[in-house]
Amino acid sequence: MTDGMNWDLIASRLQDEQRKMIHEENWRGPDFYAEALRRTFGYRAAGEQRDRERTLPYEHLNAGQGLMTRAESRHEQEGAVYFANAARERAEEQVREMRAEVARVYREAAADLAKLIRDRCNERTVPSRYRREGVLWAADLIDPAVPKDQYGNAIPRDTDAA
């Protein structure tokens, strides 16, 4: 924020104010430099009347925010909060999209794996009928296209209806 500051002009004004305070007003006190800076930047406490200006109660310079009024500081903070919230919302949307894509890829991989298991399972590779049924049941558990109950167990197919 120092790009727009004319430091030479500020230094000149500060020296002029200090000269006036010392030579013309015979200023003495512990707040000499603070008062010189106030005068340099034209600071007026809230509630003081300015020449032909309306007094605004929020025009306090706050040292923690640099050389700006509280209203300007509040405006800057609200802008920063707005952009931070917008960035957070964008990031959350991207995370939702990525999770949906990962779930889709997992479903495709599970379907491919279940198909591979079913293709490889036959009387020659798995000679026992009960083991073969167990392998096919495991493939049904893996396959996302097979309907499942609320606990993730495959719902048995009606072999009598066929």
Rank of each mutant, 00 (worst) to 15 (best):
M1H: 12
M1S: 14
M1K: 13
D3N: 07
D3Y: 12
D3Q: 13
G4K: 06
L9G: 00
I10S: 01
I10W: 00
A11L: 07
A11K: 05
S12R: 02
R13K: 11
E17M: 03
Q18G: 00
I22N: 03
I22V: 15
H23G: 01
E24M: 07
N26C: 02
N26A: 08
N26L: 15
R28E: 15
R28I: 14
R28T: 15
D31P: 04
Y33S: 04
R38Y: 04
R39A: 00
Y43V: 14
R44Y: 09
A45Y: 09
G47R: 01
E48W: 10
Q49R: 11
R52W: 07
E53P: 01
R54F: 15
R54G: 06
T55L: 08
Y58R: 05
Y58L: 09
H60L: 12
H60W: 03
L61M: 14
L61D: 05
A63R: 05
G66A: 04
L67A: 01
L67S: 00
T69R: 02
T69Y: 03
A71Q: 14
A71E: 15
E72W: 02
R74A: 14
H75L: 09
G79K: 01
A80T: 07
A80I: 13
A80D: 09
V81T: 11
Y82P: 00
N85S: 07
A87S: 10
A87L: 09
E89R: 12
A91H: 08
E92D: 14
E93S: 10
E93P: 01
E97D: 10
E97A: 12
M98W: 14
R99G: 06
A100T: 13
V102Q: 09
A103K: 07
A103H: 10
V105S: 06
Y106L: 12
E108N: 11
A109W: 01
A111N: 06
D112F: 08
A114I: 10
A114R: 00
K115D: 12
D119P: 00
D119E: 14
R120W: 01
N122S: 15
P127K: 00
E133A: 15
E133V: 07
E133G: 06
V135C: 04
L136C: 04
L136F: 13
L136N: 02
L141C: 11
D143A: 08
P144E: 01
A145C: 05
V146Y: 02
P147H: 00
P147G: 01
P147L: 09
K148G: 03
K148R: 08
D149K: 10
Q150T: 04
Q150I: 03
Q150V: 06
G152D: 04
G152Y: 09
A154M: 03
A154F: 05
I155D: 03
P156N: 04
D160K: 06
D160N: 08
D160V: 07
A162Q: 13
A162G: 14
